[in-house]
């Protein structure tokens, strides 16, 4: 997909995001807010796709990484001022990456459902820690965070995320992630260190989830530990699965659709979440390989 000129593609995307952002004051602020939501969800879904899709390590803890990044970044700008915003994004990402390293280690020993429950557990532990930490506002969380996330930041970083993850996977080095996904024993017989690839996937995935959390904090202006429970992780997993595991473009489209869907269904008010859940079931029955995977690209679904 992205092979040559991928850096040019990235620069074009960044310029476009900047241009839209420049005129953003003229847009309907409600729609602009949703657009930023979409950008953040793209980052989350694409980064989780590296772990769940490309590397095949079923993780249910993505919301935890998001929380680490969000709380870290929000606390930074609350304490030391708004000018630190870009720096806070990076620090949030790095803290989340460290958490990812920690979570990645059990992945060396646990597989499948066991790994899913371990990552879910890590996500919940992170949430409980924030809930009990006075420094991060305990159960009420952090409020009064400056609104600093613009269209440029959300979509610019989404473009960087896509570039990094698609670029990584589309290299000889990155084929290792797919090999680990397909067959760890055969991968190690080819000189590929499965452990290293798995941890790398967790660290990179967590890094971008952390940045997404930081963006989210400066977009919603309020952070509550309860917002990062495992239902949030599952929302992101659903995006990845609907997009087609390991298909970056599909996952991006799925993130867009699934973010817009609740807004579209808003007129059905009390029925919209029921419709959302029925949609998940219907899609799994009708298009389990993902919404945007057509037979010619179809992967061998033999998990």
């Amino acid at each position: 997909m992205i092979r040559h000129g991928s850096r040019r593609w990235l620069i074009a995307a960044l310029v476009a995001a900047f241009a839209v952002s420049w005129f953003s004051t003229r847009f309907n602020q409600y729609y602009l807010g949703i657009a930023i939501d979409v950008g953040i969800n793209i980052i989350l879904a694409v980064s989780l796709n590296l772990i769940n899709g490309h590397t095949g390590q079923f993780s249910l803890g993505h919301a935890g990484f998001m929380a680490v990044g969000g709380f870290t970044a929000a606390k930074l700008t609350l304490l030391y001022g708004e000018s630190l915003y870009p720096f806070s994004l990076i620090v949030g990402g790095i803290m989340a990456a460290l958490a990812g390293l920690l979570v990645g280690i059990p992945s060396l020993r646990c597989k499948g459902d066991y790994l899913a429950i371990v990552t879910l557990g890590f996500g919940e532990i992170i949430r409980v820690i924030f809930q009990n930490s006075q420094f991060f506002g305990a159960a009420t969380g952090l409020t009064g965070i400056a609104k600093l996330t613009t269209f440029f930041w959300a979509w610019g970083i989404a473009a960087v995320t896509i570039y990094v993850i698609a670029g990584l996977v589309n290299s000889t080095y990155g084929r290792g992630f797919l090999c680990v996904h397909d067959d760890e024993v055969a991968a190690s017989a080819m000189g590929i260190n499965p452990l290293r690839y798995k941890v790398t996937a967790f660290v990179i995935g967590a890094f971008f989830a952390g940045i997404a959390g930081a963006l989210y904090a400066h977009h919603k202006r309020v952070l509550q530990p309860d917002g990062f429970n495992f239902i949030k992780s599952i929302d992101i997993v659903v995006m990845v699965i609907l997009g087609g595991m390991g298909r970056t473009a599909g996952v991006v489209v799925a993130a867009i659709i699934l973010t817009l869907l609740p807004e579209v269904l808003r007129s059905f008010a009390s029925y919209r979440m029921i419709i959302y859940s029925l949609l998940i079931i219907g899609l799994m029955m009708g298009r389990p390989q993902g919404l945007f995977v057509w037979p010619i690209f179809k992967k061998n679904a033999k998990n």
């Binding site: 079923f58 599952i234 997993v237 659903v238 699965i241 595991m245 979440m273 029921i274 959302y276 859940s277 029925l278 998940i280 079931i281 799994m284 029955m285 389990p288 679904a301 033999k302 998990n303």
Partner: peptide, 23 residues
Amino acid sequence: PLRRRPRLTVLITAIGVSLFIEY
């Protein structure tokens, strides 16, 4: 209906069923 499908598909369906009942 999903008996012969990949396990992940069934897992997500189960999540969907759970959300459906709750909502």
